[in-house]
Structures are given as C-alpha cells and as structure tokens.
Write a protein that binds this DNA or RNA. Structure first.
Length: 257
DNA sequence: ACTCACTGAACTCGTTTGCA
DNA sequence: TGCAAACGAGTTCAGTGAGT
C-alpha cells in the first residue's frame, strides 16, 4: 500500500492521488517507468518525480522517521505491511488517567521476535532502550494516552511511525473501547471482564498488600501482579489481529472508491 | 474523573485550466 | 498572452471520546 501512496509528497493531496490511480498509475515503479503516460500539471510532475525517487530510497533504508513525518497520523496505516517486521505493539497500565498524579505500573511490548513485560520497580527502565529497536508502533488510543504518558513519566521520545488503531477504526465507523471492538471482530481474551480500573486495584493488591476482587475472586500479592501482567499482555497481543483487520478494511475502502 | 490528539468543517491562498 | 473561474492544498478551530 505504501508503494502506491503519493499523498505524502508535498503538494500532492487526496484528489491528485485519486486522479493518478484512475489513470492506472498505481505504484511508484509504474510512474517512474512511464511518467509521460500520466496527465499531471508540470508542477506536479516535477514534485512527483523527486518525491517518488526519494521515497524508494528511504523505503530501502527503512527510514521510519521520513515516512512518519510525511505520512502523518491519518496515513500511517499505509506503511504497516512494509514496516511489519520492524513493528512493536504497546500497551501500558497506570495508577490513574493523568500523568501529573499517576504512575506507569506495567508495560507490555510485543513483536514478532518477543513479548516482554516491564514492571515498575523491576525493569521498567529498560523500556526506553528496547523501543529503539523498532521503527513502527501500534497502540489503541496511544496518541492520547500511552505515548504522552510515557513521554511525561519516562522521557521516552517516539520517532516511530505510529498507528493508533482507535483513530483508524473511528474512521471506519467503529466506536467504543478496545474490548468492545475486539468482541465485534470476534477476538477472544482469557481475561474477559477485567478492565482498566481493575488494573489499578491489581497493582495496589500487589504493591500494598490490599485485596482486589476480580471477577468474584479475591487476589493479592504475586498472584495479583501475575493477573495484571496477563491482562496487559492480552491487551497488547490482541493488537496484532486488530491491526491486520483494520489495515485490510482500510485497503478495501480505497478499492471500493 | 481528567486529558488532549484527532476529525471535519470552514476558510484562505496559490495553481491550473479554459477561453478569447 | 492575459484574465477569470475552478480547483485543490494547507491552515485554523471547536467539539469529541476513550484511555486507567
């Protein structure tokens, strides 16, 4: 999908890209082979040629910062398939909603290579350097929650291409939270019924020895942490199927245009 | 409960097109 | 070549909604 995208080239918008596609110009390669076959204004021709050549080079180098800058948030999904091997899926749990008076308690980072959990007071400080191994991040509502939280609390920069599935699914007409949309798409989870507020209770049960009542069961200590990690892990691992479905659906909306 | 990035509508401004 | 109309990209801003 990325290699048929022209909108990231400065001066080229949705209309010009649609116009190129309707003329049969459906990839960078096709444009470079026979640029004269396609009717575009002289200004667009100049920009397209330079833009397509540069895009090809940057993709060969997997220059995620280049594509992050030019694709922006609404088109980041188009780079998903090309950057899948460089992608990680991220979800965090915290003690509240605001970074001002809350902490990050656990984080899960999932990729094709490994699934790693980070826990406050244990290995949370490893997250920042581990993230440098990736060029693409997938989250659910991460643009407004996970990433700003990590920036504020752990000073983590995010030069990655970011696919926020909530925003992408919103454009497809899906409303509601992660668990609700998972159900709609037939994605199952072991920790069904556990929510974000429970994650706070589980952390307190682990850290301060209080008792948390989760799905009618009383848990505390290591058992509470173990359930919190499992919940965090499922939130993250399920993003893979959700991302695959979302990107396919977005591709279909373009085909039916 | 609190936060703020994103969306979409409305607008501006530069470019292209069509005609004489 | 010059002009006016049409088009499209970019910018601004208010409202929305889901995370723990």
């Amino acid at each position: 999908m990325l290699e048929k995208t022209f909108q990231h080239i400065p001066g080229v918008g949705e209309k010009t890209e649609e116009d190129l596609w309707s003329q049969g110009c459906d990839s960078w390669q096709r444009y470079l082979e026979n640029p004269g076959d396609f009717i575009v204004s002289p200004l667009h021709r100049k920009r397209l040629h330079a833009g397509v050549l540069e895009s090809k080079c940057r993709l060969e180098e997997f220059d995620h910062e280049y594509f992050r800058r030019l694709l922006g948030t609404s088109l980041s999904w188009r780079a998903y398939n090309q950057f899948k091997d460089h992608a990680c899926y991220l979800d965090i749990e915290t003690t509240g909603l605001s970074p001002r008076d809350s902490h990050v308690t656990t984080v899960c980072l999932h990729s094709s290579r490994e699934t790693k959990n980070y826990v406050l007071g244990e290995n949370l400080n490893e997250l920042k350097s581990d993230l440098q191994d990736y060029g693409y991040i997938v989250t659910f509502n991460g643009a407004r929650f996970d990433l700003p939280f990590l920036r504020a609390k752990l000073a983590i920069p995010f030069p990655h291409i970011h696919l926020d599935l909530m925003q992408a699914l919103h454009r497809l007409g899906y409303r509601g939270g992660l668990k609700y949309i998972e159900k709609q798409m037939g994605i199952r989870r072991e920790t069904d019924g556990v929510g974000g507020l429970d994650a706070i209770h589980l952390w307190n049960a682990y850290r301060y020895g209080t008792t948390a009542e989760i799905l009618g069961e009383k848990v505390r200590g290591k058992e509470a942490l173990s359930l919190l990690i499992q919940y965090n892990r499922e939130d993250t691992v399920n993003l893979v199927e959700l991302a695959e479905n979302t990107v396919k659906l977005l591709e279909n909306t373009l085909k039916t245009k």
